[in-house]
Design a binder for these strands. Structure first.
Length: 331
DNA sequence: AACCTGTCCAACCGCCAACCA
DNA sequence: GTGGTTGGCGGTTGGACAGGT
């Protein structure tokens, strides 16, 4: 499995390994060590490149490899280390005996990443997702695409609908933030199960990490916090959070002829030279881009929460947050 | 039963840093 | 200092498989 049927390139075989090849490789390394990987295939009688042999050995044939499902403990270790190290799979693997970087990488991409997203966390920063405006362009793109396909002009009604969707999405994100804050406050006041989390465990911003949320909500590990509160499973049951709509001064572009290039030029206003484009947010808005919260380099350890935040999240959205009775209570 | 769709994961690719002549 | 080689890493691919229609 995995790759195309074995092919021969430069006389060297590629593709899945046969049991015979595995046996040759294992036997040779057990008797001689791998030595120079480049020279190994020749000495072992394998029609493979050295790189392929090394990968096969390190990812599959090594005797100390632990196979099977990842335990809860391993999962939490990966989460924790990823929040510190980012996608440094080999570094993470050194802390998980018997697991290979490839295995951890696959596990992350197929399980943990989705889990974090479902919980409302950004898988790269391990912080609550704040990419509302990152998804807004997709909505706009879809709407424009629809227009192109259907031949229906984008009228004010459609724009208003989109804006309403945007506000609703913002409310969701905002509510998730409130949940995080509430959890943090509760842990401080020792009023519920969150009391086991100490302030020293916390992100400097006061937010809980996915690991912490997973820890206390392990009975609903794949459920969004929004869905797990008070048995309410419907988004429509969210409280009205009174997010000021004027804060989202979104200006949809009406004409489809603004579509340009592969970057969907109609999504943003920017010069065609490739300089960073300006999101379609009114310049007179006092709000910083939400994406600022997660703008760190995914591979950069210091961009993660464990290396310190940029202050209280309240400071990011003063107008938005302090306008709400919820926040005045928390602030 | 046949087809479709999504998931899993072994294997490949390209890049980069370390090493050596 | 330079260029070639090697090993290692992270991202991506695509066939096998499972579950759904």
């Amino acid at each position: 499995m995995g790759r195309s049927p074995s092919s021969v390139e430069n006389g060297l075989k590629k593709g899945p390994w046969t049991p015979e090849e595995d046996q040759k490789l294992v036997q040779y390394i057990q008797e001689n060590g791998h030595g120079s990987w480049r020279a190994l295939p020749k000495h072992a009688g394998l029609n493979r490149c050295g790189k392929s042999c090394r990968l096969r050995w390190t990812n599959y044939l090594r005797p100390d490899i632990k196979r099977g499902k990842f335990s809860q403990e391993e999962e939490q270790t990966i989460l924790h280390l990823h929040s510190i190290l980012g996608n440094k799979w080999s570094a993470i693997a050194t802390n998980l005996p018997g697991r290979t970087d490839n295995e951890i990488k696959n596990f992350w991409n197929t399980h943990l990443k989705k889990k974090l997203i479902q919980m409302g966390f950004d898988p790269m920063t391990h912080r609550p997702r704040t990419d509302f405006f990152a998804t807004l362009p997709q909505l706009i793109a879809l709407a424009n695409l629809r227009e192109l396909v259907d031949g229906h002009p984008w009228d004010d009604h459609a724009a208003a609908r989109l804006q309403a969707e945007a506000v609703r999405a913002a409310r969701l994100q905002y509510f998730q933030y409130l949940l995080q804050s509430a959890a943090a406050m509760a842990s401080n006041s020792n009023t519920n199960s969150l009391s086991t989390i100490t302030t020293s465990d916390m992100d400097p911003t006061g937010l809980l990490s996915p690991l912490q949320v997973l820890s206390f909500a392990s009975d609903v590990p794949t459920t969004s916090p929004i869905e797990s509160i008070g048995g309410q499973s419907q988004i429509s049951q969210l409280p009205d959070l009174h997010i000021p709509c004027s804060s989202f001064d979104v200006q949809p572009i009406m004409s489809s002829d603004t579509i340009q290039g592969s970057n969907f030029g109609f999504l943003s206003q920017g010069d065609p030279s490739g300089t960073p484009r300006t999101p379609l947010i009114s310049p007179h808005s006092s709000l910083p881009p939400l994406t600022d919260l997660s703008a760190g380099n995914p591979g950069d350890a210091c961009s993660t929460s464990s290396c310190g935040g940029t202050g209280s999240p309240l400071s990011f959205w003063p107008e938005l947050l302090l306008d709400d009775p919820f926040m005045t209570e928390f602030a």
